[in-house]
Design a binder for these strands. Sequence first.
RNA 1: GCGCGGUUAGCUCAGUUGGUAGAGCAAUUCAUUUACACUGAAAAGGUCGCAGGUUCGAGUCCUGCACCGCGCACCA
Length: 762
Amino acid sequence: RFSDKSDFREYRISQTSQKPDLHTTETFSMVLPPPNVTGMLHLGHAYEDALQDTIIRYKRMLGKKALWIPGTDSAAIATQAKVEKDIQKEENKSRHDLGREELVKRVSIFAQKSESTILNQVRRMGSSLDWSRYAYTLDEKRKMAVSTAFAKMYEAGLIYRGNRIVNWDPKGQTTISDDEIIYEEREAKLYTFKYSADFPISISTTRPETKVGDTAVAVHPEDLRYQKYIGQEFDLIFCEIPIHIKIIADQAVEKEFGTGALGVTPAHSQIDWEIADRHNLHRPQVINEYAKMTVLGILKDKKITEARETVVAWLKEQNLLEKEENIKQNISTSERTGAIIEPLPKLQWWIDVNKKFEIPYSEIPGIKSGDQVSLKEIMRESVSSGAVKINQERFQKIYFHWIENLRDWCISRQIWFGHRIPVWYHENKCVPVLGREKEISKCQEIIIGEINAGTDLGLPEVGPRPPEFNCEFCAAKFIQDPDTLDTWFSSGLWTFSTLGWPEKTEDLKKFYPTSLICPGYEILQLWISRMILMSGFHLGQVPFKEVMIHGIVRDKNGKKFSKSLGNGIDPIEIIEKYGADALRIGLIIGTAFGNDVKFDENKIKGYKHFANKLWNVSRFVLENANLEVEPPSGIQPAYTLCRSDLHSTKHIQEFDNLTKDITSDMENYNLHLAAEKIYHYIWHTFADEILEESKEIFKKDPESAEAIERKKVLFYILENSLKILHPFMPFITEEIWCIINKNVNIKENLLIIQKWPYGKYS
RNA sequence: GCGCGGUUAGCUCAGUUGGUAGAGCAAUUCAUUUACACUGAAAAGGUCGCAGGUUCGAGUCCUGCACCGCGCACCA
């Protein structure tokens, strides 16, 4: 399991390192952003681990109760998509061929395998996590947290079920939230045309195929060109489909765009849906979940791309097409599958971010217990009050900007792997489906049908467990909602679900809010904001006091590491070549927090040389300045014996000043500066100057007073350098430390739990 | 369209409140049984993207511009 002894030692240290220090009550806590169990970690994770471990080791050496919680994330969509793809490739089967139970089983097996790969990688990095508190987003405790959280938010009226336009991923066959969309700029054609020769207004569109779903043409209320038509209605045949168009006036229309008239397609556009709301328009759906046309005639069953060509051809044939121009368009694609998002109306679960509710308890500055607040206000206030400090201002700006534009969060997903929505429906209102797992999606359709038809389904039962009673009238059972939750719902609870919530645990009391979180900027909106939301609602507290956002690691061409590009590097490969210490410090030095890292193997190699240098420096000091004395108590490290009468010389002062300087860098999380300073000092001052001049002194007379004094100086600098360097390079420093202290009870005197040096002699 | 970053040595990047421009790698010259060739010494290399401004003094602050990247919105 461990490739070498020092590896094992480090692992053992991490196991024992959380031993409570009775002399201090100050805590420092962090959660590890849980990696997705979708395979293995890449260098980005290695960088993130290195940063956090450096910080937690530093805080631990300051004497704080330092807790760093490990965990992994089931990453519902990502993981299921990966396994589905593999199954399709290897067995040519879809998830529907396997059925829900079998698929979830297969995904879980894959997740477990990934989990052990990942945990091994994390350990190889030297991450000093508290493994006794290990959590997985889909384990029993976290399941309880998720369903409790859902139920509480449902009861507060913040979670609701509604038929609205969703972002539909036709490839993944699921909804996704606004934040899981990636915009890509592409060339598109803007067509200007009339529905028919006798229709008075021309409209423009990039999606002619959706126009069979139009129910209105909207113009700006003050647009003089179209005033006279407002209110008129037309029955037309468009592309063999009868449509009914009403001409309406709406503020949302921009006079300057295209012809200034907008063909309203309520079922396939967010904005049009809202316009339809305001004008009470009919909303026919003309495209289905597979991105195919649902209408009859020449468009029947066609994929949207084909349908587009067909409609354009029809328009040309009818002489209705007036203009065709090339424009640039931002197209929405799914973050996970890359598919083009199809806006569709669907019945889904949502979190209302604007609805006010009475917050029972609040420690968030600016929000009092009992206040009427919205989730959006919680998110804004938590950061603007300074309770959550996002340390780089630029990311704080992005955060506020995002909140301004935030809409309700769609939390239900039509995938099978993940937290199933903890809602149970009365069986008889959902037609018989028990024992027919594959039919559940059909059940969902029927529910939608009933809702659309205005049937009152009654309130569902919401809670962590199915209702334990049968229907009092017909003895029917309850069946669970077939959908699962957005993975960020459970991730949003992470800072407190890992500490035992909803139970009132000692851990929560002691370690909450957590001190720091250290995520990449790509999940600022997806994760950081959701944690602030969830923590604010459920605990009335912020999830963490500080956020240090780091950049991403790119390959030498500046490209993001990704599976599809095949440029991923396994950190283990680098560790085997250069050592974990070299990888850690090599990633940290030269990169300010928040900036991207271009990965350069040569740089890592340079720090392997440094590890070698450090080794030799230590050897020189041990061989030439052997001051080892048998410790009288058997506990005190030997070197301390020679320290009491150490005079403050030039070298000591210089080193102590450096120590102070580095400590201040560490306090400000300027890890890159601190690491570079100690690196530079050890190599170019300690080795190149002090050791060189010591050689001369020892050559003259190794027992002279000057030589003895010098030996003490060397020891002092070496031991304190090891301490300062330890957070960055834990393996080699601990190894050397143990050699230096071979006469003492090392278990109680490991470097990892030594006190950080403050520069006592300065 | 709105907003946010970046632009510093050949390459990758630091530069904390304004005070003589820094590191690693690469390249050059020299040294060589040294704790360490995973070495040492020396030298070289920059109009800090461009143009203005504030200041005794600007890589750092302000304005404008260019290119690269990102976030959001729009995406009829």
